[in-house]
Every structure is written in structure tokens, then in C-alpha cells.
Design a binder for these strands. Structure first.
Lengths: 202, 202
DNA sequence: CCTTACCTTCCTACTGGTAGGTAGACAAAC
DNA sequence: GTTTGTCTACCTACCAGTAGGAAGGTAAGG
């Protein structure tokens, strides 16, 4: 009931929390070593180089995010609820996991000095997220729950930027609640102005 | 007609461009040393510790930003033009200075592992910017050019988050133009929907 | 005018510590 | 009996920071 994670997974878990805290240059093999009680050399056995470790980590993160977003679309029929619970997911993360952060948002800032194998994977996650948001907004327009000023793809970029910027602000001000305030208001702007909702849901 | 900057200013200039590229842990005294042709030890003469260097740097950045924002309010009478040219400033930076970035947005991501003397100064800049945006939006509401859904302070936070998030997206996608797309659309959402403007201006 | 003293700036040379990474031995598991 | 995981021990490169001194400017005192 306690630990079932393999060593490599534990390494990735620790590395992820360290990256979230301080970025690519903000952690070392020694840090991971100390955190999980294993020698540095053993980590190199699992992940020969740092670039490879982070590349695998970002790949895993992207897949997890992809799966999470997919399940949100399956779990909630209404696009506005899908957006809402995506927002709530991050609100919870940021509040509970003491100032959490999206790994890829963190790495995006360091893009210019990231190994290419990492940078390309960060880009892939941004693509995925943008596409997911676009299709949710698109569906919302078709169901008449959203009223957009721009094309869904553009509004998706705006929303994604808000999410990442809000994470940054929450950190800068040391105020986890700020994230929720910003994103909720941003989502509210997308909602079509009062109308007897078409479907029976809600 | 060439160089009038003192050594310490050159150090700060180089350090700033290095931080923008890779954050606090992404540069070293050796990097600065190589860039301006001076020995490492000489940099320690001007700035004994790295924390002090960055603290001074962020202070300078905050003052410059403060002055720039103030002059925008003096140069343009219309709040929407003030916002517009603030946006254009960053568009130019990001396009010309090959993927530039706000120093404080960069450091905000690393907040958790920044020396306190740096962190507090980053917070100060975020406060300044939020206050400036709030007062511009406030003025816009009074002049009937902006129609806000939330209190000006909240809308200011939303706008600030969009700006920082858009910088992140521009980097992640390697597309400088994306910044302008996102911010212009965000500003457009604030404008009051068509109305014979009260003042003669514009 | 010249000396003494101080200050600023930069230098060479170095410290202790940490970075990412490697070599090879050992033990358990398949 | 090879593969897998861990270890000790080590490497080179680099990190922030220090010691001590050379070069030059400035200014006071005689």
C-alpha cells in the first residue's frame, strides 16, 4: 500500500518535482540521489545523461496530460464543464502541492538553452494542449455555450497563455488563490451571455 | 559614439541577457567574464556575490520599467493607446531581440529557489506592473473606452498573466508573432463595444 | 615638484565544492 | 550465465568566491 513504483519511476518523480521548483539547470543528479537514497552512478544506469532523463520525463508528462485531457472530455459532456474541471485540476495542484507548476511551462522559459531532444518534446506538449483547448472551444461554439471573438484556435492560445501566466503570477505573489481568480474570470468571458441552455445537462 | 557604459553596467547588461535566456541558474560569472573580456575576479569586485548582482539587476530593471510605464501614461492620453503601446513594446522586443523576455517573468518561475533579496524585488516589479495596469484600466472605465467584467485590479491580473503566458508561448512555439496575436485579442476584449467616443481624442 | 598615502580597477592564482559522467566490482534474478 | 541494478571510486570541468598584488588615478603635505 506504500511503494510500487520502480526505481526509474521514482527518479522521474523526484526529477519532475525538482524541475517544477527550479527548472532544467536547477537540479542535479546529486539532488535526486539524496532524495531517493541511491548513489549518483545508479541514476546514470537508468538515465545515461541528464538530457535523456528530462526528455523521457517530458514524454511521460505529455502522455499523462494527454490521457488526463482525454478523460476530461469523456467524463464531462459540456465543454464549459470540461474547461472548468481542467481549471480546477490546476487550482488543486497549485494549492495542495504548495505552488505546483506545469513542467512544460517551466521548461518553455528555458527553451533557448534546452537540449533539442527536450525542446521538441516541450513543443509537442504545447501543441497537444492547444489542440485540446481548440476542440473544446469549437465544440462549445457549436453547442452555443461559448461565444468567441476570434477563431477557436486563437482563443485557445489566449486561454493557454492565461493559464501559464496565472501560474507565474501565483508564484510571484506567493498566492495560490490568484490562479483560480484569473482563470475563472477568463473562462467566464467565453460563456455565451445567458440563454436557455440547449441540452438538458445542467 | 560607441561605449559610454561603465563596467558594472556592462556586467548588468550581459547578466540580464543571460538571465533572460536561461534564468538564475543558467549563467555563471565565467559566462559574463567571457562576454565582456574581463576576468571573473573583476566581476566579484563589482558584485561580491551572485545574489547581490541579480538583486541590483532586478532593481535596475524595475526602475527602468517603472520609468517606461510612467512615460507611456504621459505620452498617450487614451488608456487604450497606453495599453496598445505597452503591447507593442514587447512585440518589438520579442521580434527584434530574438525571443526576448521579461526578466522578472523568467525569475518568477524560479521563485522558490531564489535568494530572498532577489525574490522580494521580483515581487516588487509584479506589484508595480499590476498597479500600472489597474490604473490604466480604471481610467479607461471612467472614460468609457473599456467595459470590464471584473474589478480593474482583477482584470489587470488577467492581462498581466496573458502577457507573461504569451511570452512563454512565443518561446515554446518559436513564433514571435504569436505574442502579438494573443495580446491584441486580449486587449480587444476590454474595449467598450462601439460608441461615439466621448472626448475629441481620436 | 615630489612624495606619501589612499582608492579603484583589474589581474593571476588559488580554494573547496559540485557538476555530469565513467569504470569496474559485486550480488541477485531471470 | 547473462542481464539488471547497485555500489565504490574516480575523472574532468566548472562553480562561486578569496587572497594578494600590479597599475593607474587622485589628492594632501611638504
Amino acid at each position: 500500500m506504500k511503494s510500487k513504483a520502480s526505481t526509474s519511476e521514482k527518479i522521474l518523480d523526484v526529477a519532475q518535482s525538482l524541475i517544477v521548483a527550479g527548472g532544467y539547470n536547477g537540479f542535479s543528479y546529486a539532488d535526486i540521489s539524496a532524495a531517493i537514497g541511491i548513489r549518483k552512478a545508479s541514476i546514470h544506469h537508468h538515465f545515461p545523461t541528464k538530457a535523456e532523463l528530462v526528455a523521457v520525463l517530458v514524454d511521460r508528462y505529455r502522455r499523462q496530460a494527454e490521457a488526463g485531457l482525454k478523460s476530461l472530455r469523456e467524463q464531462f459532456s459540456s465543454p464549459s464543464e470540461q474547461l472548468q474541471s481542467y481549471s480546477e485540476f490546476w487550482q488543486t495542484c497549485i494549492r495542495d502541492a504548495s505552488q505546483s507548476f506545469c513542467v512544460c511551462a517551466m521548461l518553455a522559459g528555458e527553451m533557448q538553452m534546452l537540449p533539442e531532444e527536450v525542446a521538441s518534446r516541450v513543443r509537442a506538449h504545447f501543441d497537444n494542449l492547444a489542440n485540446w483547448l481548440t476542440s473544446v472551444l469549437q465544440a462549445g461554439v457549436e453547442q452555443d455555450v461559448f461565444r468567441l471573438n476570434k477563431r477557436p484556435a486563437d482563443e485557445a492560445q489566449m486561454l493557454m497563455a492565461s493559464v501559464h501566466g496565472a501560474m507565474l503570477s501565483a508564484r510571484a505573489f506567493g498566492d495560490p488563490a490568484l490562479f483560480g481568480t484569473i482563470i475563472s474570470a477568463q473562462i467566464a468571458k467565453l460563456l455565451a451571455p445567458e440563454r436557455s441552455r440547449t441540452a438538458g445537462a445542467r
